[in-house]
Amino acid sequence: MNDLVQLTVDEDRCIGVGQCELLEPEVFCLSDEDTISRVVDGAVLDRARALAVVEGCPNMAISVKA
C-alpha cells in the first residue's frame, strides 16, 4: 500500500536550486519573493517519491516529517 508522508524544507539550508519543484511541482513551490522552496499546504507524497526528492535536493534541505 502507498505510505503517504509529509515533507519539510529547512529554510536556512535552501539555496533556491529548484530541483524539488522540478521533480514534484504539486508539492513544492519556489517563492517568487525570496526563491526559497516551500511545501504546498497539506501536500503529501508516497514514501518512494518523497525519498527521491529528499535525495534529489543538492543541499540536503528537505526531510520527511516525523
Binding site: 536556512d12 529548484g18 526563491t35
Partner: peptide, 15 residues
C-alpha cells in the same frame, strides 16, 4: 554564501 547565492538563484531555477 547563502546570502550571495540567494541574490542570483532565481535567475537559474528550472522554471
Amino acid at each position: 554564501h547563502t546570502r550571495l547565492r540567494r541574490v542570483v538563484s532565481r535567475a537559474f531555477t528550472p522554471r
